[in-house]
Design a protein around this nucleic acid. Structure first.
Length: 419
RNA sequence: GUGAAUGUAGCUCAGUUGGUUAGAGCACCAGGCUGUGGCCCUGGGGGUCGGGGGUUCGAGUCCCCUCAUUCACCCCA
């Protein structure tokens, strides 16, 4: 503890054996649900050239401006630990022929790195399950990814999460709206909070979801993004909503929903769980038809989302959906006296080969201590290798629940357990 | 990046206006039961009181700095 350099870096966590099971469960569900929608897994490098995110995510975003872990490698390349995966996936697609046969449906489970001020649900290294549908311009694709996220949450037993939906327009109508909003807000600049006065210059759409009451009062009379949507965008939004309704997915229209990454166009959505406090957004996504071009490639429409696994697991905990720890092993091998260690080991191997999870006494402790250990592991059976039994080629098998014991010939142990 | 709270054994926490060797419960180990878990009894190992500096005869207690966690903001998953 004394040496700061030997501590876990700020905003990171060690995921210990007691919690890896819920991670496995969540990851398994993510793989299963994504594949059930025909999505295939992609894995991209942990680090990329800085330009991928500067151009993909946007130079003016917080993520790129002040949260990237940038470094120069020994060859003088400017690299960065990926702060998100969508731009990285787009980059990967440019370098393959996958997109020559759209649609391309992909998913990933990857770590992301951002220099954030840590809080519960906000880490410097966090994991996202993400999904991307490339080469699909129509609104059904937007609805599909939202449905996919919803399926995962339902699969894990979650209820009561709220889907919020909005459209922020396209390259045609967004500038018109932005201009109208800036004109309006500039006229009432002195009524806005300090943050919003800054936002007005940098990212005026963000003023819409400011929580300061005076700002909300100003926003209440402001031009609404939906009023400025061009016909194409309106039709698209209506298409998404129609599909969601057909699927029976409940959502709320939230005209103030804005996302912080520049690449979004038209559809944006979030799925949140309000009991998580300030970090309540579990899933965020939308459409990013302009991303591929921003990265210098041929234009390709796409929709997707990122879903934070740490936050998802916090939510499962808050909802009491983390199952209690089960037995770590099927059998515990106890033995008496150091000379029987090798024989105990041979028995353990036999059972493992037969598909059993087996832990063997490692410290040569008293039988009492070995049984205590077995109990702790919730091992249903203990196989006791002792000199008395070994002479006759048998082992004592103890049922830990009933305390019943029976001698079983060693060569038949595997068959006994396999039933 | 802004504002605030917290930091004592592996865990949850006591620790009176600064005053002798820093405690409890749980956990762990051993013995009681010389080869049998859970209950009980007895004993034991464990702490640079987050770290550094200062005030003082004396600091877990007071002051400063620092690190970490948490909460709100900001942002986002």
């Amino acid at each position: 503890m004394a040496n700061v350099d030997l501590q876990r870096p700020r905003g990171t966590q060690d995921i210990l054996p007691a919690v890896t099971p819920i991670w496995h469960r969540v990851e398994a569900a993510a793989h299963r649900v994504a594949q059930s929608y025909g999505y295939r897994e992609i894995r991209t490098p942990v680090f990329e050239h800085v330009e991928v995110f500067r151009r993909g995510v946007g130079d003016a975003t917080d993520i790129v401006e002040k949260e990237m872990y940038e470094f120069e490698d020994r060859g003088g390349r400017r690299l960065v630990l990926r702060p998100e995966s969508t731009a990285a996936v787009a980059r990967a697609l440019q370098q393959t022929s996958l997109l020559s046969e759209p649609p391309v449906r992909l998913y990933y489970i990857q770590s992301h790195f951002r220099y954030e001020r840590p809080q519960s649900g906000r880490l410097r290294q966090h994991t996202q399950f993400g999904v991307e549908a490339w080469g699909v311009p129509g609104p059904l694709a937007d609805a599909e990814v939202i449905a996919l996220a919803e399926s995962l949450l339902t699969d894990l037993g979650l209820k009561g999460l709220v889907v919020r939906l909005n459209s922020i327009g396209c390259s045609d109508c967004r500038p018109r709206y932005r201009e109208a909003l800036v004109t309006y807000l500039a006229g009432r600049r002195d009524e806005l909070c300090g943050d919003c006065q800054r936002r007005l210059d940098q990212n005026p759409l963000r003023v819409l979801d400011c929580k300061v009451p005076t700002c909300q009062a100003v926003v209440a009379d402001s031009p609404k993004p939906l009023d400025y949507l061009c016909e194409t965008c309106q039709t698209h939004l209506a298409g998404v909503e129609g599909a969601l309704s057909a699927l029976g997915i409940t959502y709320v229209r939230d005209g103030s929903l804005v996302r912080g990454l520049d690449y979004y166009t038209r559809t944006v959505f979030e799925i949140g769980y309000d009991k998580l406090g300030a970090q309540s957004t579990v899933c965020g996504g939308g459409r990013y038809d302009g991303l591929m071009e921003a990265l210098g490639g041929k234009a390709q429409p796409a929709v997707g989302f990122g879903l934070g696994l740490e936050r998802l697991i916090l939510t499962l905990g808050a909802e009491g959906l983390v199952p209690p720890e089960g037995a770590a092993v099927d059998a515990y091998i106890a033995y008496l006296g150091p000379q029987l260690g090798p024989e105990a080991m041979r028995v353990a191997q036999m059972l493992r080969a037969a598909g059993q999870r087996v832990e063997m006494e490692a410290l040569g402790r008293s039988l009492k201590a070995q049984l205590r250990r077995a109990q702790k592991l919730m091992a249903p059976y203990v196989v006791i290798i002792g000199p008395q039994e070994l002479e006759r080629g048998v082992a004592m098998v103890r049922n830990m629940e009933t305390s019943a014991q029976a001698e079983v010939p060693i060569e038949r142990l595997a068959a006994t357990f396999a039933r």
